[in-house]
Design a protein around this nucleic acid. Structure first.
Lengths: 128, 128
DNA sequence: CGGGATCCCCCGCGATACTG
DNA sequence: CAGTATCGCGGGGGATCCCG
């Protein structure tokens, strides 16, 4: 409020400590959330176990927790098929789909610029 | 390596647990890193104190830590002017500038879609 | 298969104090 | 002004067990 940021037509500003958009920014920037969005977005609806194997190294707890939060935030839809054994599918909602390209670029940036970042680190570490 | 992800010309894949790009993804998705990138990118070179006031609620420790990591990763350049009192300016490197639009969209998405997310949360919480 | 519930440990992070 | 160093705790997150 006090500090004038450029324009923010939405009325939300992540620079503000108490603005809810800051929390949201933190959520969508999360590692597991990002990978889940991209995985589901690229591969269509995915089952829980497919997500777990796709996102290597994610613990059961973190995966479930992330999926729940994303469902609550309206980013993805959960469909349970009560067969035996049961089956659960996750897919992006229209809202989640608008986030896909954004996060897709983030992940792509990390993969594309890894060599440059590595070089920068080596240079930085060799100094002093 | 085992699981085939689409294509990855770079050879890096954040879905892989040990791939360094996963750590990088985690870094650039960080709240403080994101806000710092956007702040510097939008306002030109900024001094330490300007960043601190711009990014409300960030602690000295986290701000310094984030800036150091970003400098090491080649995302921003640090210029120290040894006057009295001293002065330090941070600006984006060319590499950091390529990241700016990506993170800018992330922050913008959070601010623009906050109402929809809020509505989704209310709907979710009212069920059960 | 797709989770929920618990335990527990580690360290991220804030608060505080000091320095060039 | 722009940091560094240290302490202390809260909770994020892994491991484990169990259930529908």
């Amino acid at each position: 409020m006090g500090t004038t940021t450029a324009e923010r037509p939405s009325g939300f500003d992540a620079f503000s400590a108490l603005c809810p958009s800051r929390r949201l920014l933190d959520t969508i920037g999360d590692k597991w959330v990002s990978l889940a969005i991209v995985a589901i977005g690229l591969r269509g609806p995915l089952r829980y176990s497919e997500l777990a194997s796709q996102i290597e190294g994610v613990s059961q707890k973190m995966l479930t927790q992330s999926l729940r939060r994303m469902e609550r935030d309206g980013l993805l839809a959960r469909t349970v098929t009560p067969s035996v054994p049961m089956r659960t599918d996750y897919e992006l909602t229209p809202l989640g789909q608008t986030l896909l390209p954004v996060i897709g670029h983030l992940k792509a940036w990390a993969e594309e610029h890894m060599p440059e970042v590595d070089a920068a680190r080596t240079a930085y570490d060799s100094r002093v």
